[in-house]
């Protein structure tokens, strides 16, 4: 079972690494969207600081949302998704492997580039550290919940807008606590409450979201 997990994980990573330009796209999108805000609103550091947590978190959310397609689309189109479902390994484990790969390829790069964006938005150092922590805990949840949505819409023609319609309301708690943690850190207050909540949601979604995703994949496949 564990072998299947690692096998599928490394397969997805290898496939993505052979397609490197695609790998950078969500990252560039993330930086680009954040760049728009100083241009659209105002470049004064004080204003930027107050919007920074929200802007960075919303942009991360949108970047993950746009990259969700990669999770199952290709496998659905070339039929390997059906083969995965036929395999004797539990589908939940396979889903977890695919989501892990997705997070390593999109979520983790976002976390790594976040300090640069903190610099753009003139965030203080301690807020940047909390931003990294909150993204580290929050982005896996985005991938996990997103997997449910993608598996429901992968067979729908032009399912992109539909996907954001059904997934964004479910992302709201993560957005609230992620952005709020950074906000509170800037005010110099303790952030453990927010981070613990994000951790709790992460634990909940690691245990439940793959189940829902595998049911959704079977629904999609039975069509």
């Amino acid at each position: 079972m564990l072998k299947a997990y690692y096998y599928l994980l490394f397969r997805d990573l290898r496939l993505a690494l052979r397609n490197r330009h695609e790998l950078a796209n969500p990252l560039i999108f993330f930086v680009l969207v954040v760049t728009l805000f100083p241009l659209a609103v105002t470049p004064t550091p004080e204003t930027l600081q107050t919007m920074a947590p929200g802007v960075i978190w919303v942009s991360a959310l949108l970047a993950v949302l746009l990259s969700l397609d990669r999770l199952f689309k290709q496998d659905y189109e070339d039929g390997s998704l059906d083969q995965l479902m036929l395999s004797p390994n539990p589908l939940v484990i396979l889903v977890l492997a695919k989501v892990t790969a997705h997070w390593l390829l999109t979520g983790l790069p976002l976390v790594i580039i976040a300090p640069l964006l903190g610099l753009f938005m003139s965030l203080p150092m301690e807020a940047v550290i909390v931003l990294i922590y909150s993204l580290l805990l929050g982005t896996p949840v985005l991938s996990l919940i997103g997997a449910i949505g993608v598996s429901l819409t992968v067979a729908v023609n032009r399912g992109g807008v539909l996907l954001s319609l059904i997934i964004l309301p479910l992302y709201i708690p993560i957005l609230i606590f992620g952005a709020n943690a950074v906000d509170v850190a800037m005010a110099g207050l303790p952030v453990s409450g927010q981070l613990l909540f994000l951790g709790a949601v992460l634990a909940l979604s690691v245990s439940l979201a793959p189940l829902a995703t595998s049911v959704a994949l079977r629904i999609t496949a039975s069509r």
Binding site: I148, L152, A212, V215, A216, I219, S222, R223
Partner: peptide, 9 residues
């Protein structure tokens, strides 16, 4: 499958 998919949602 529309029923099942939206039901799961």
């Amino acid at each position: 499958s529309a029923d099942k998919a939206s039901g799961l949602l």
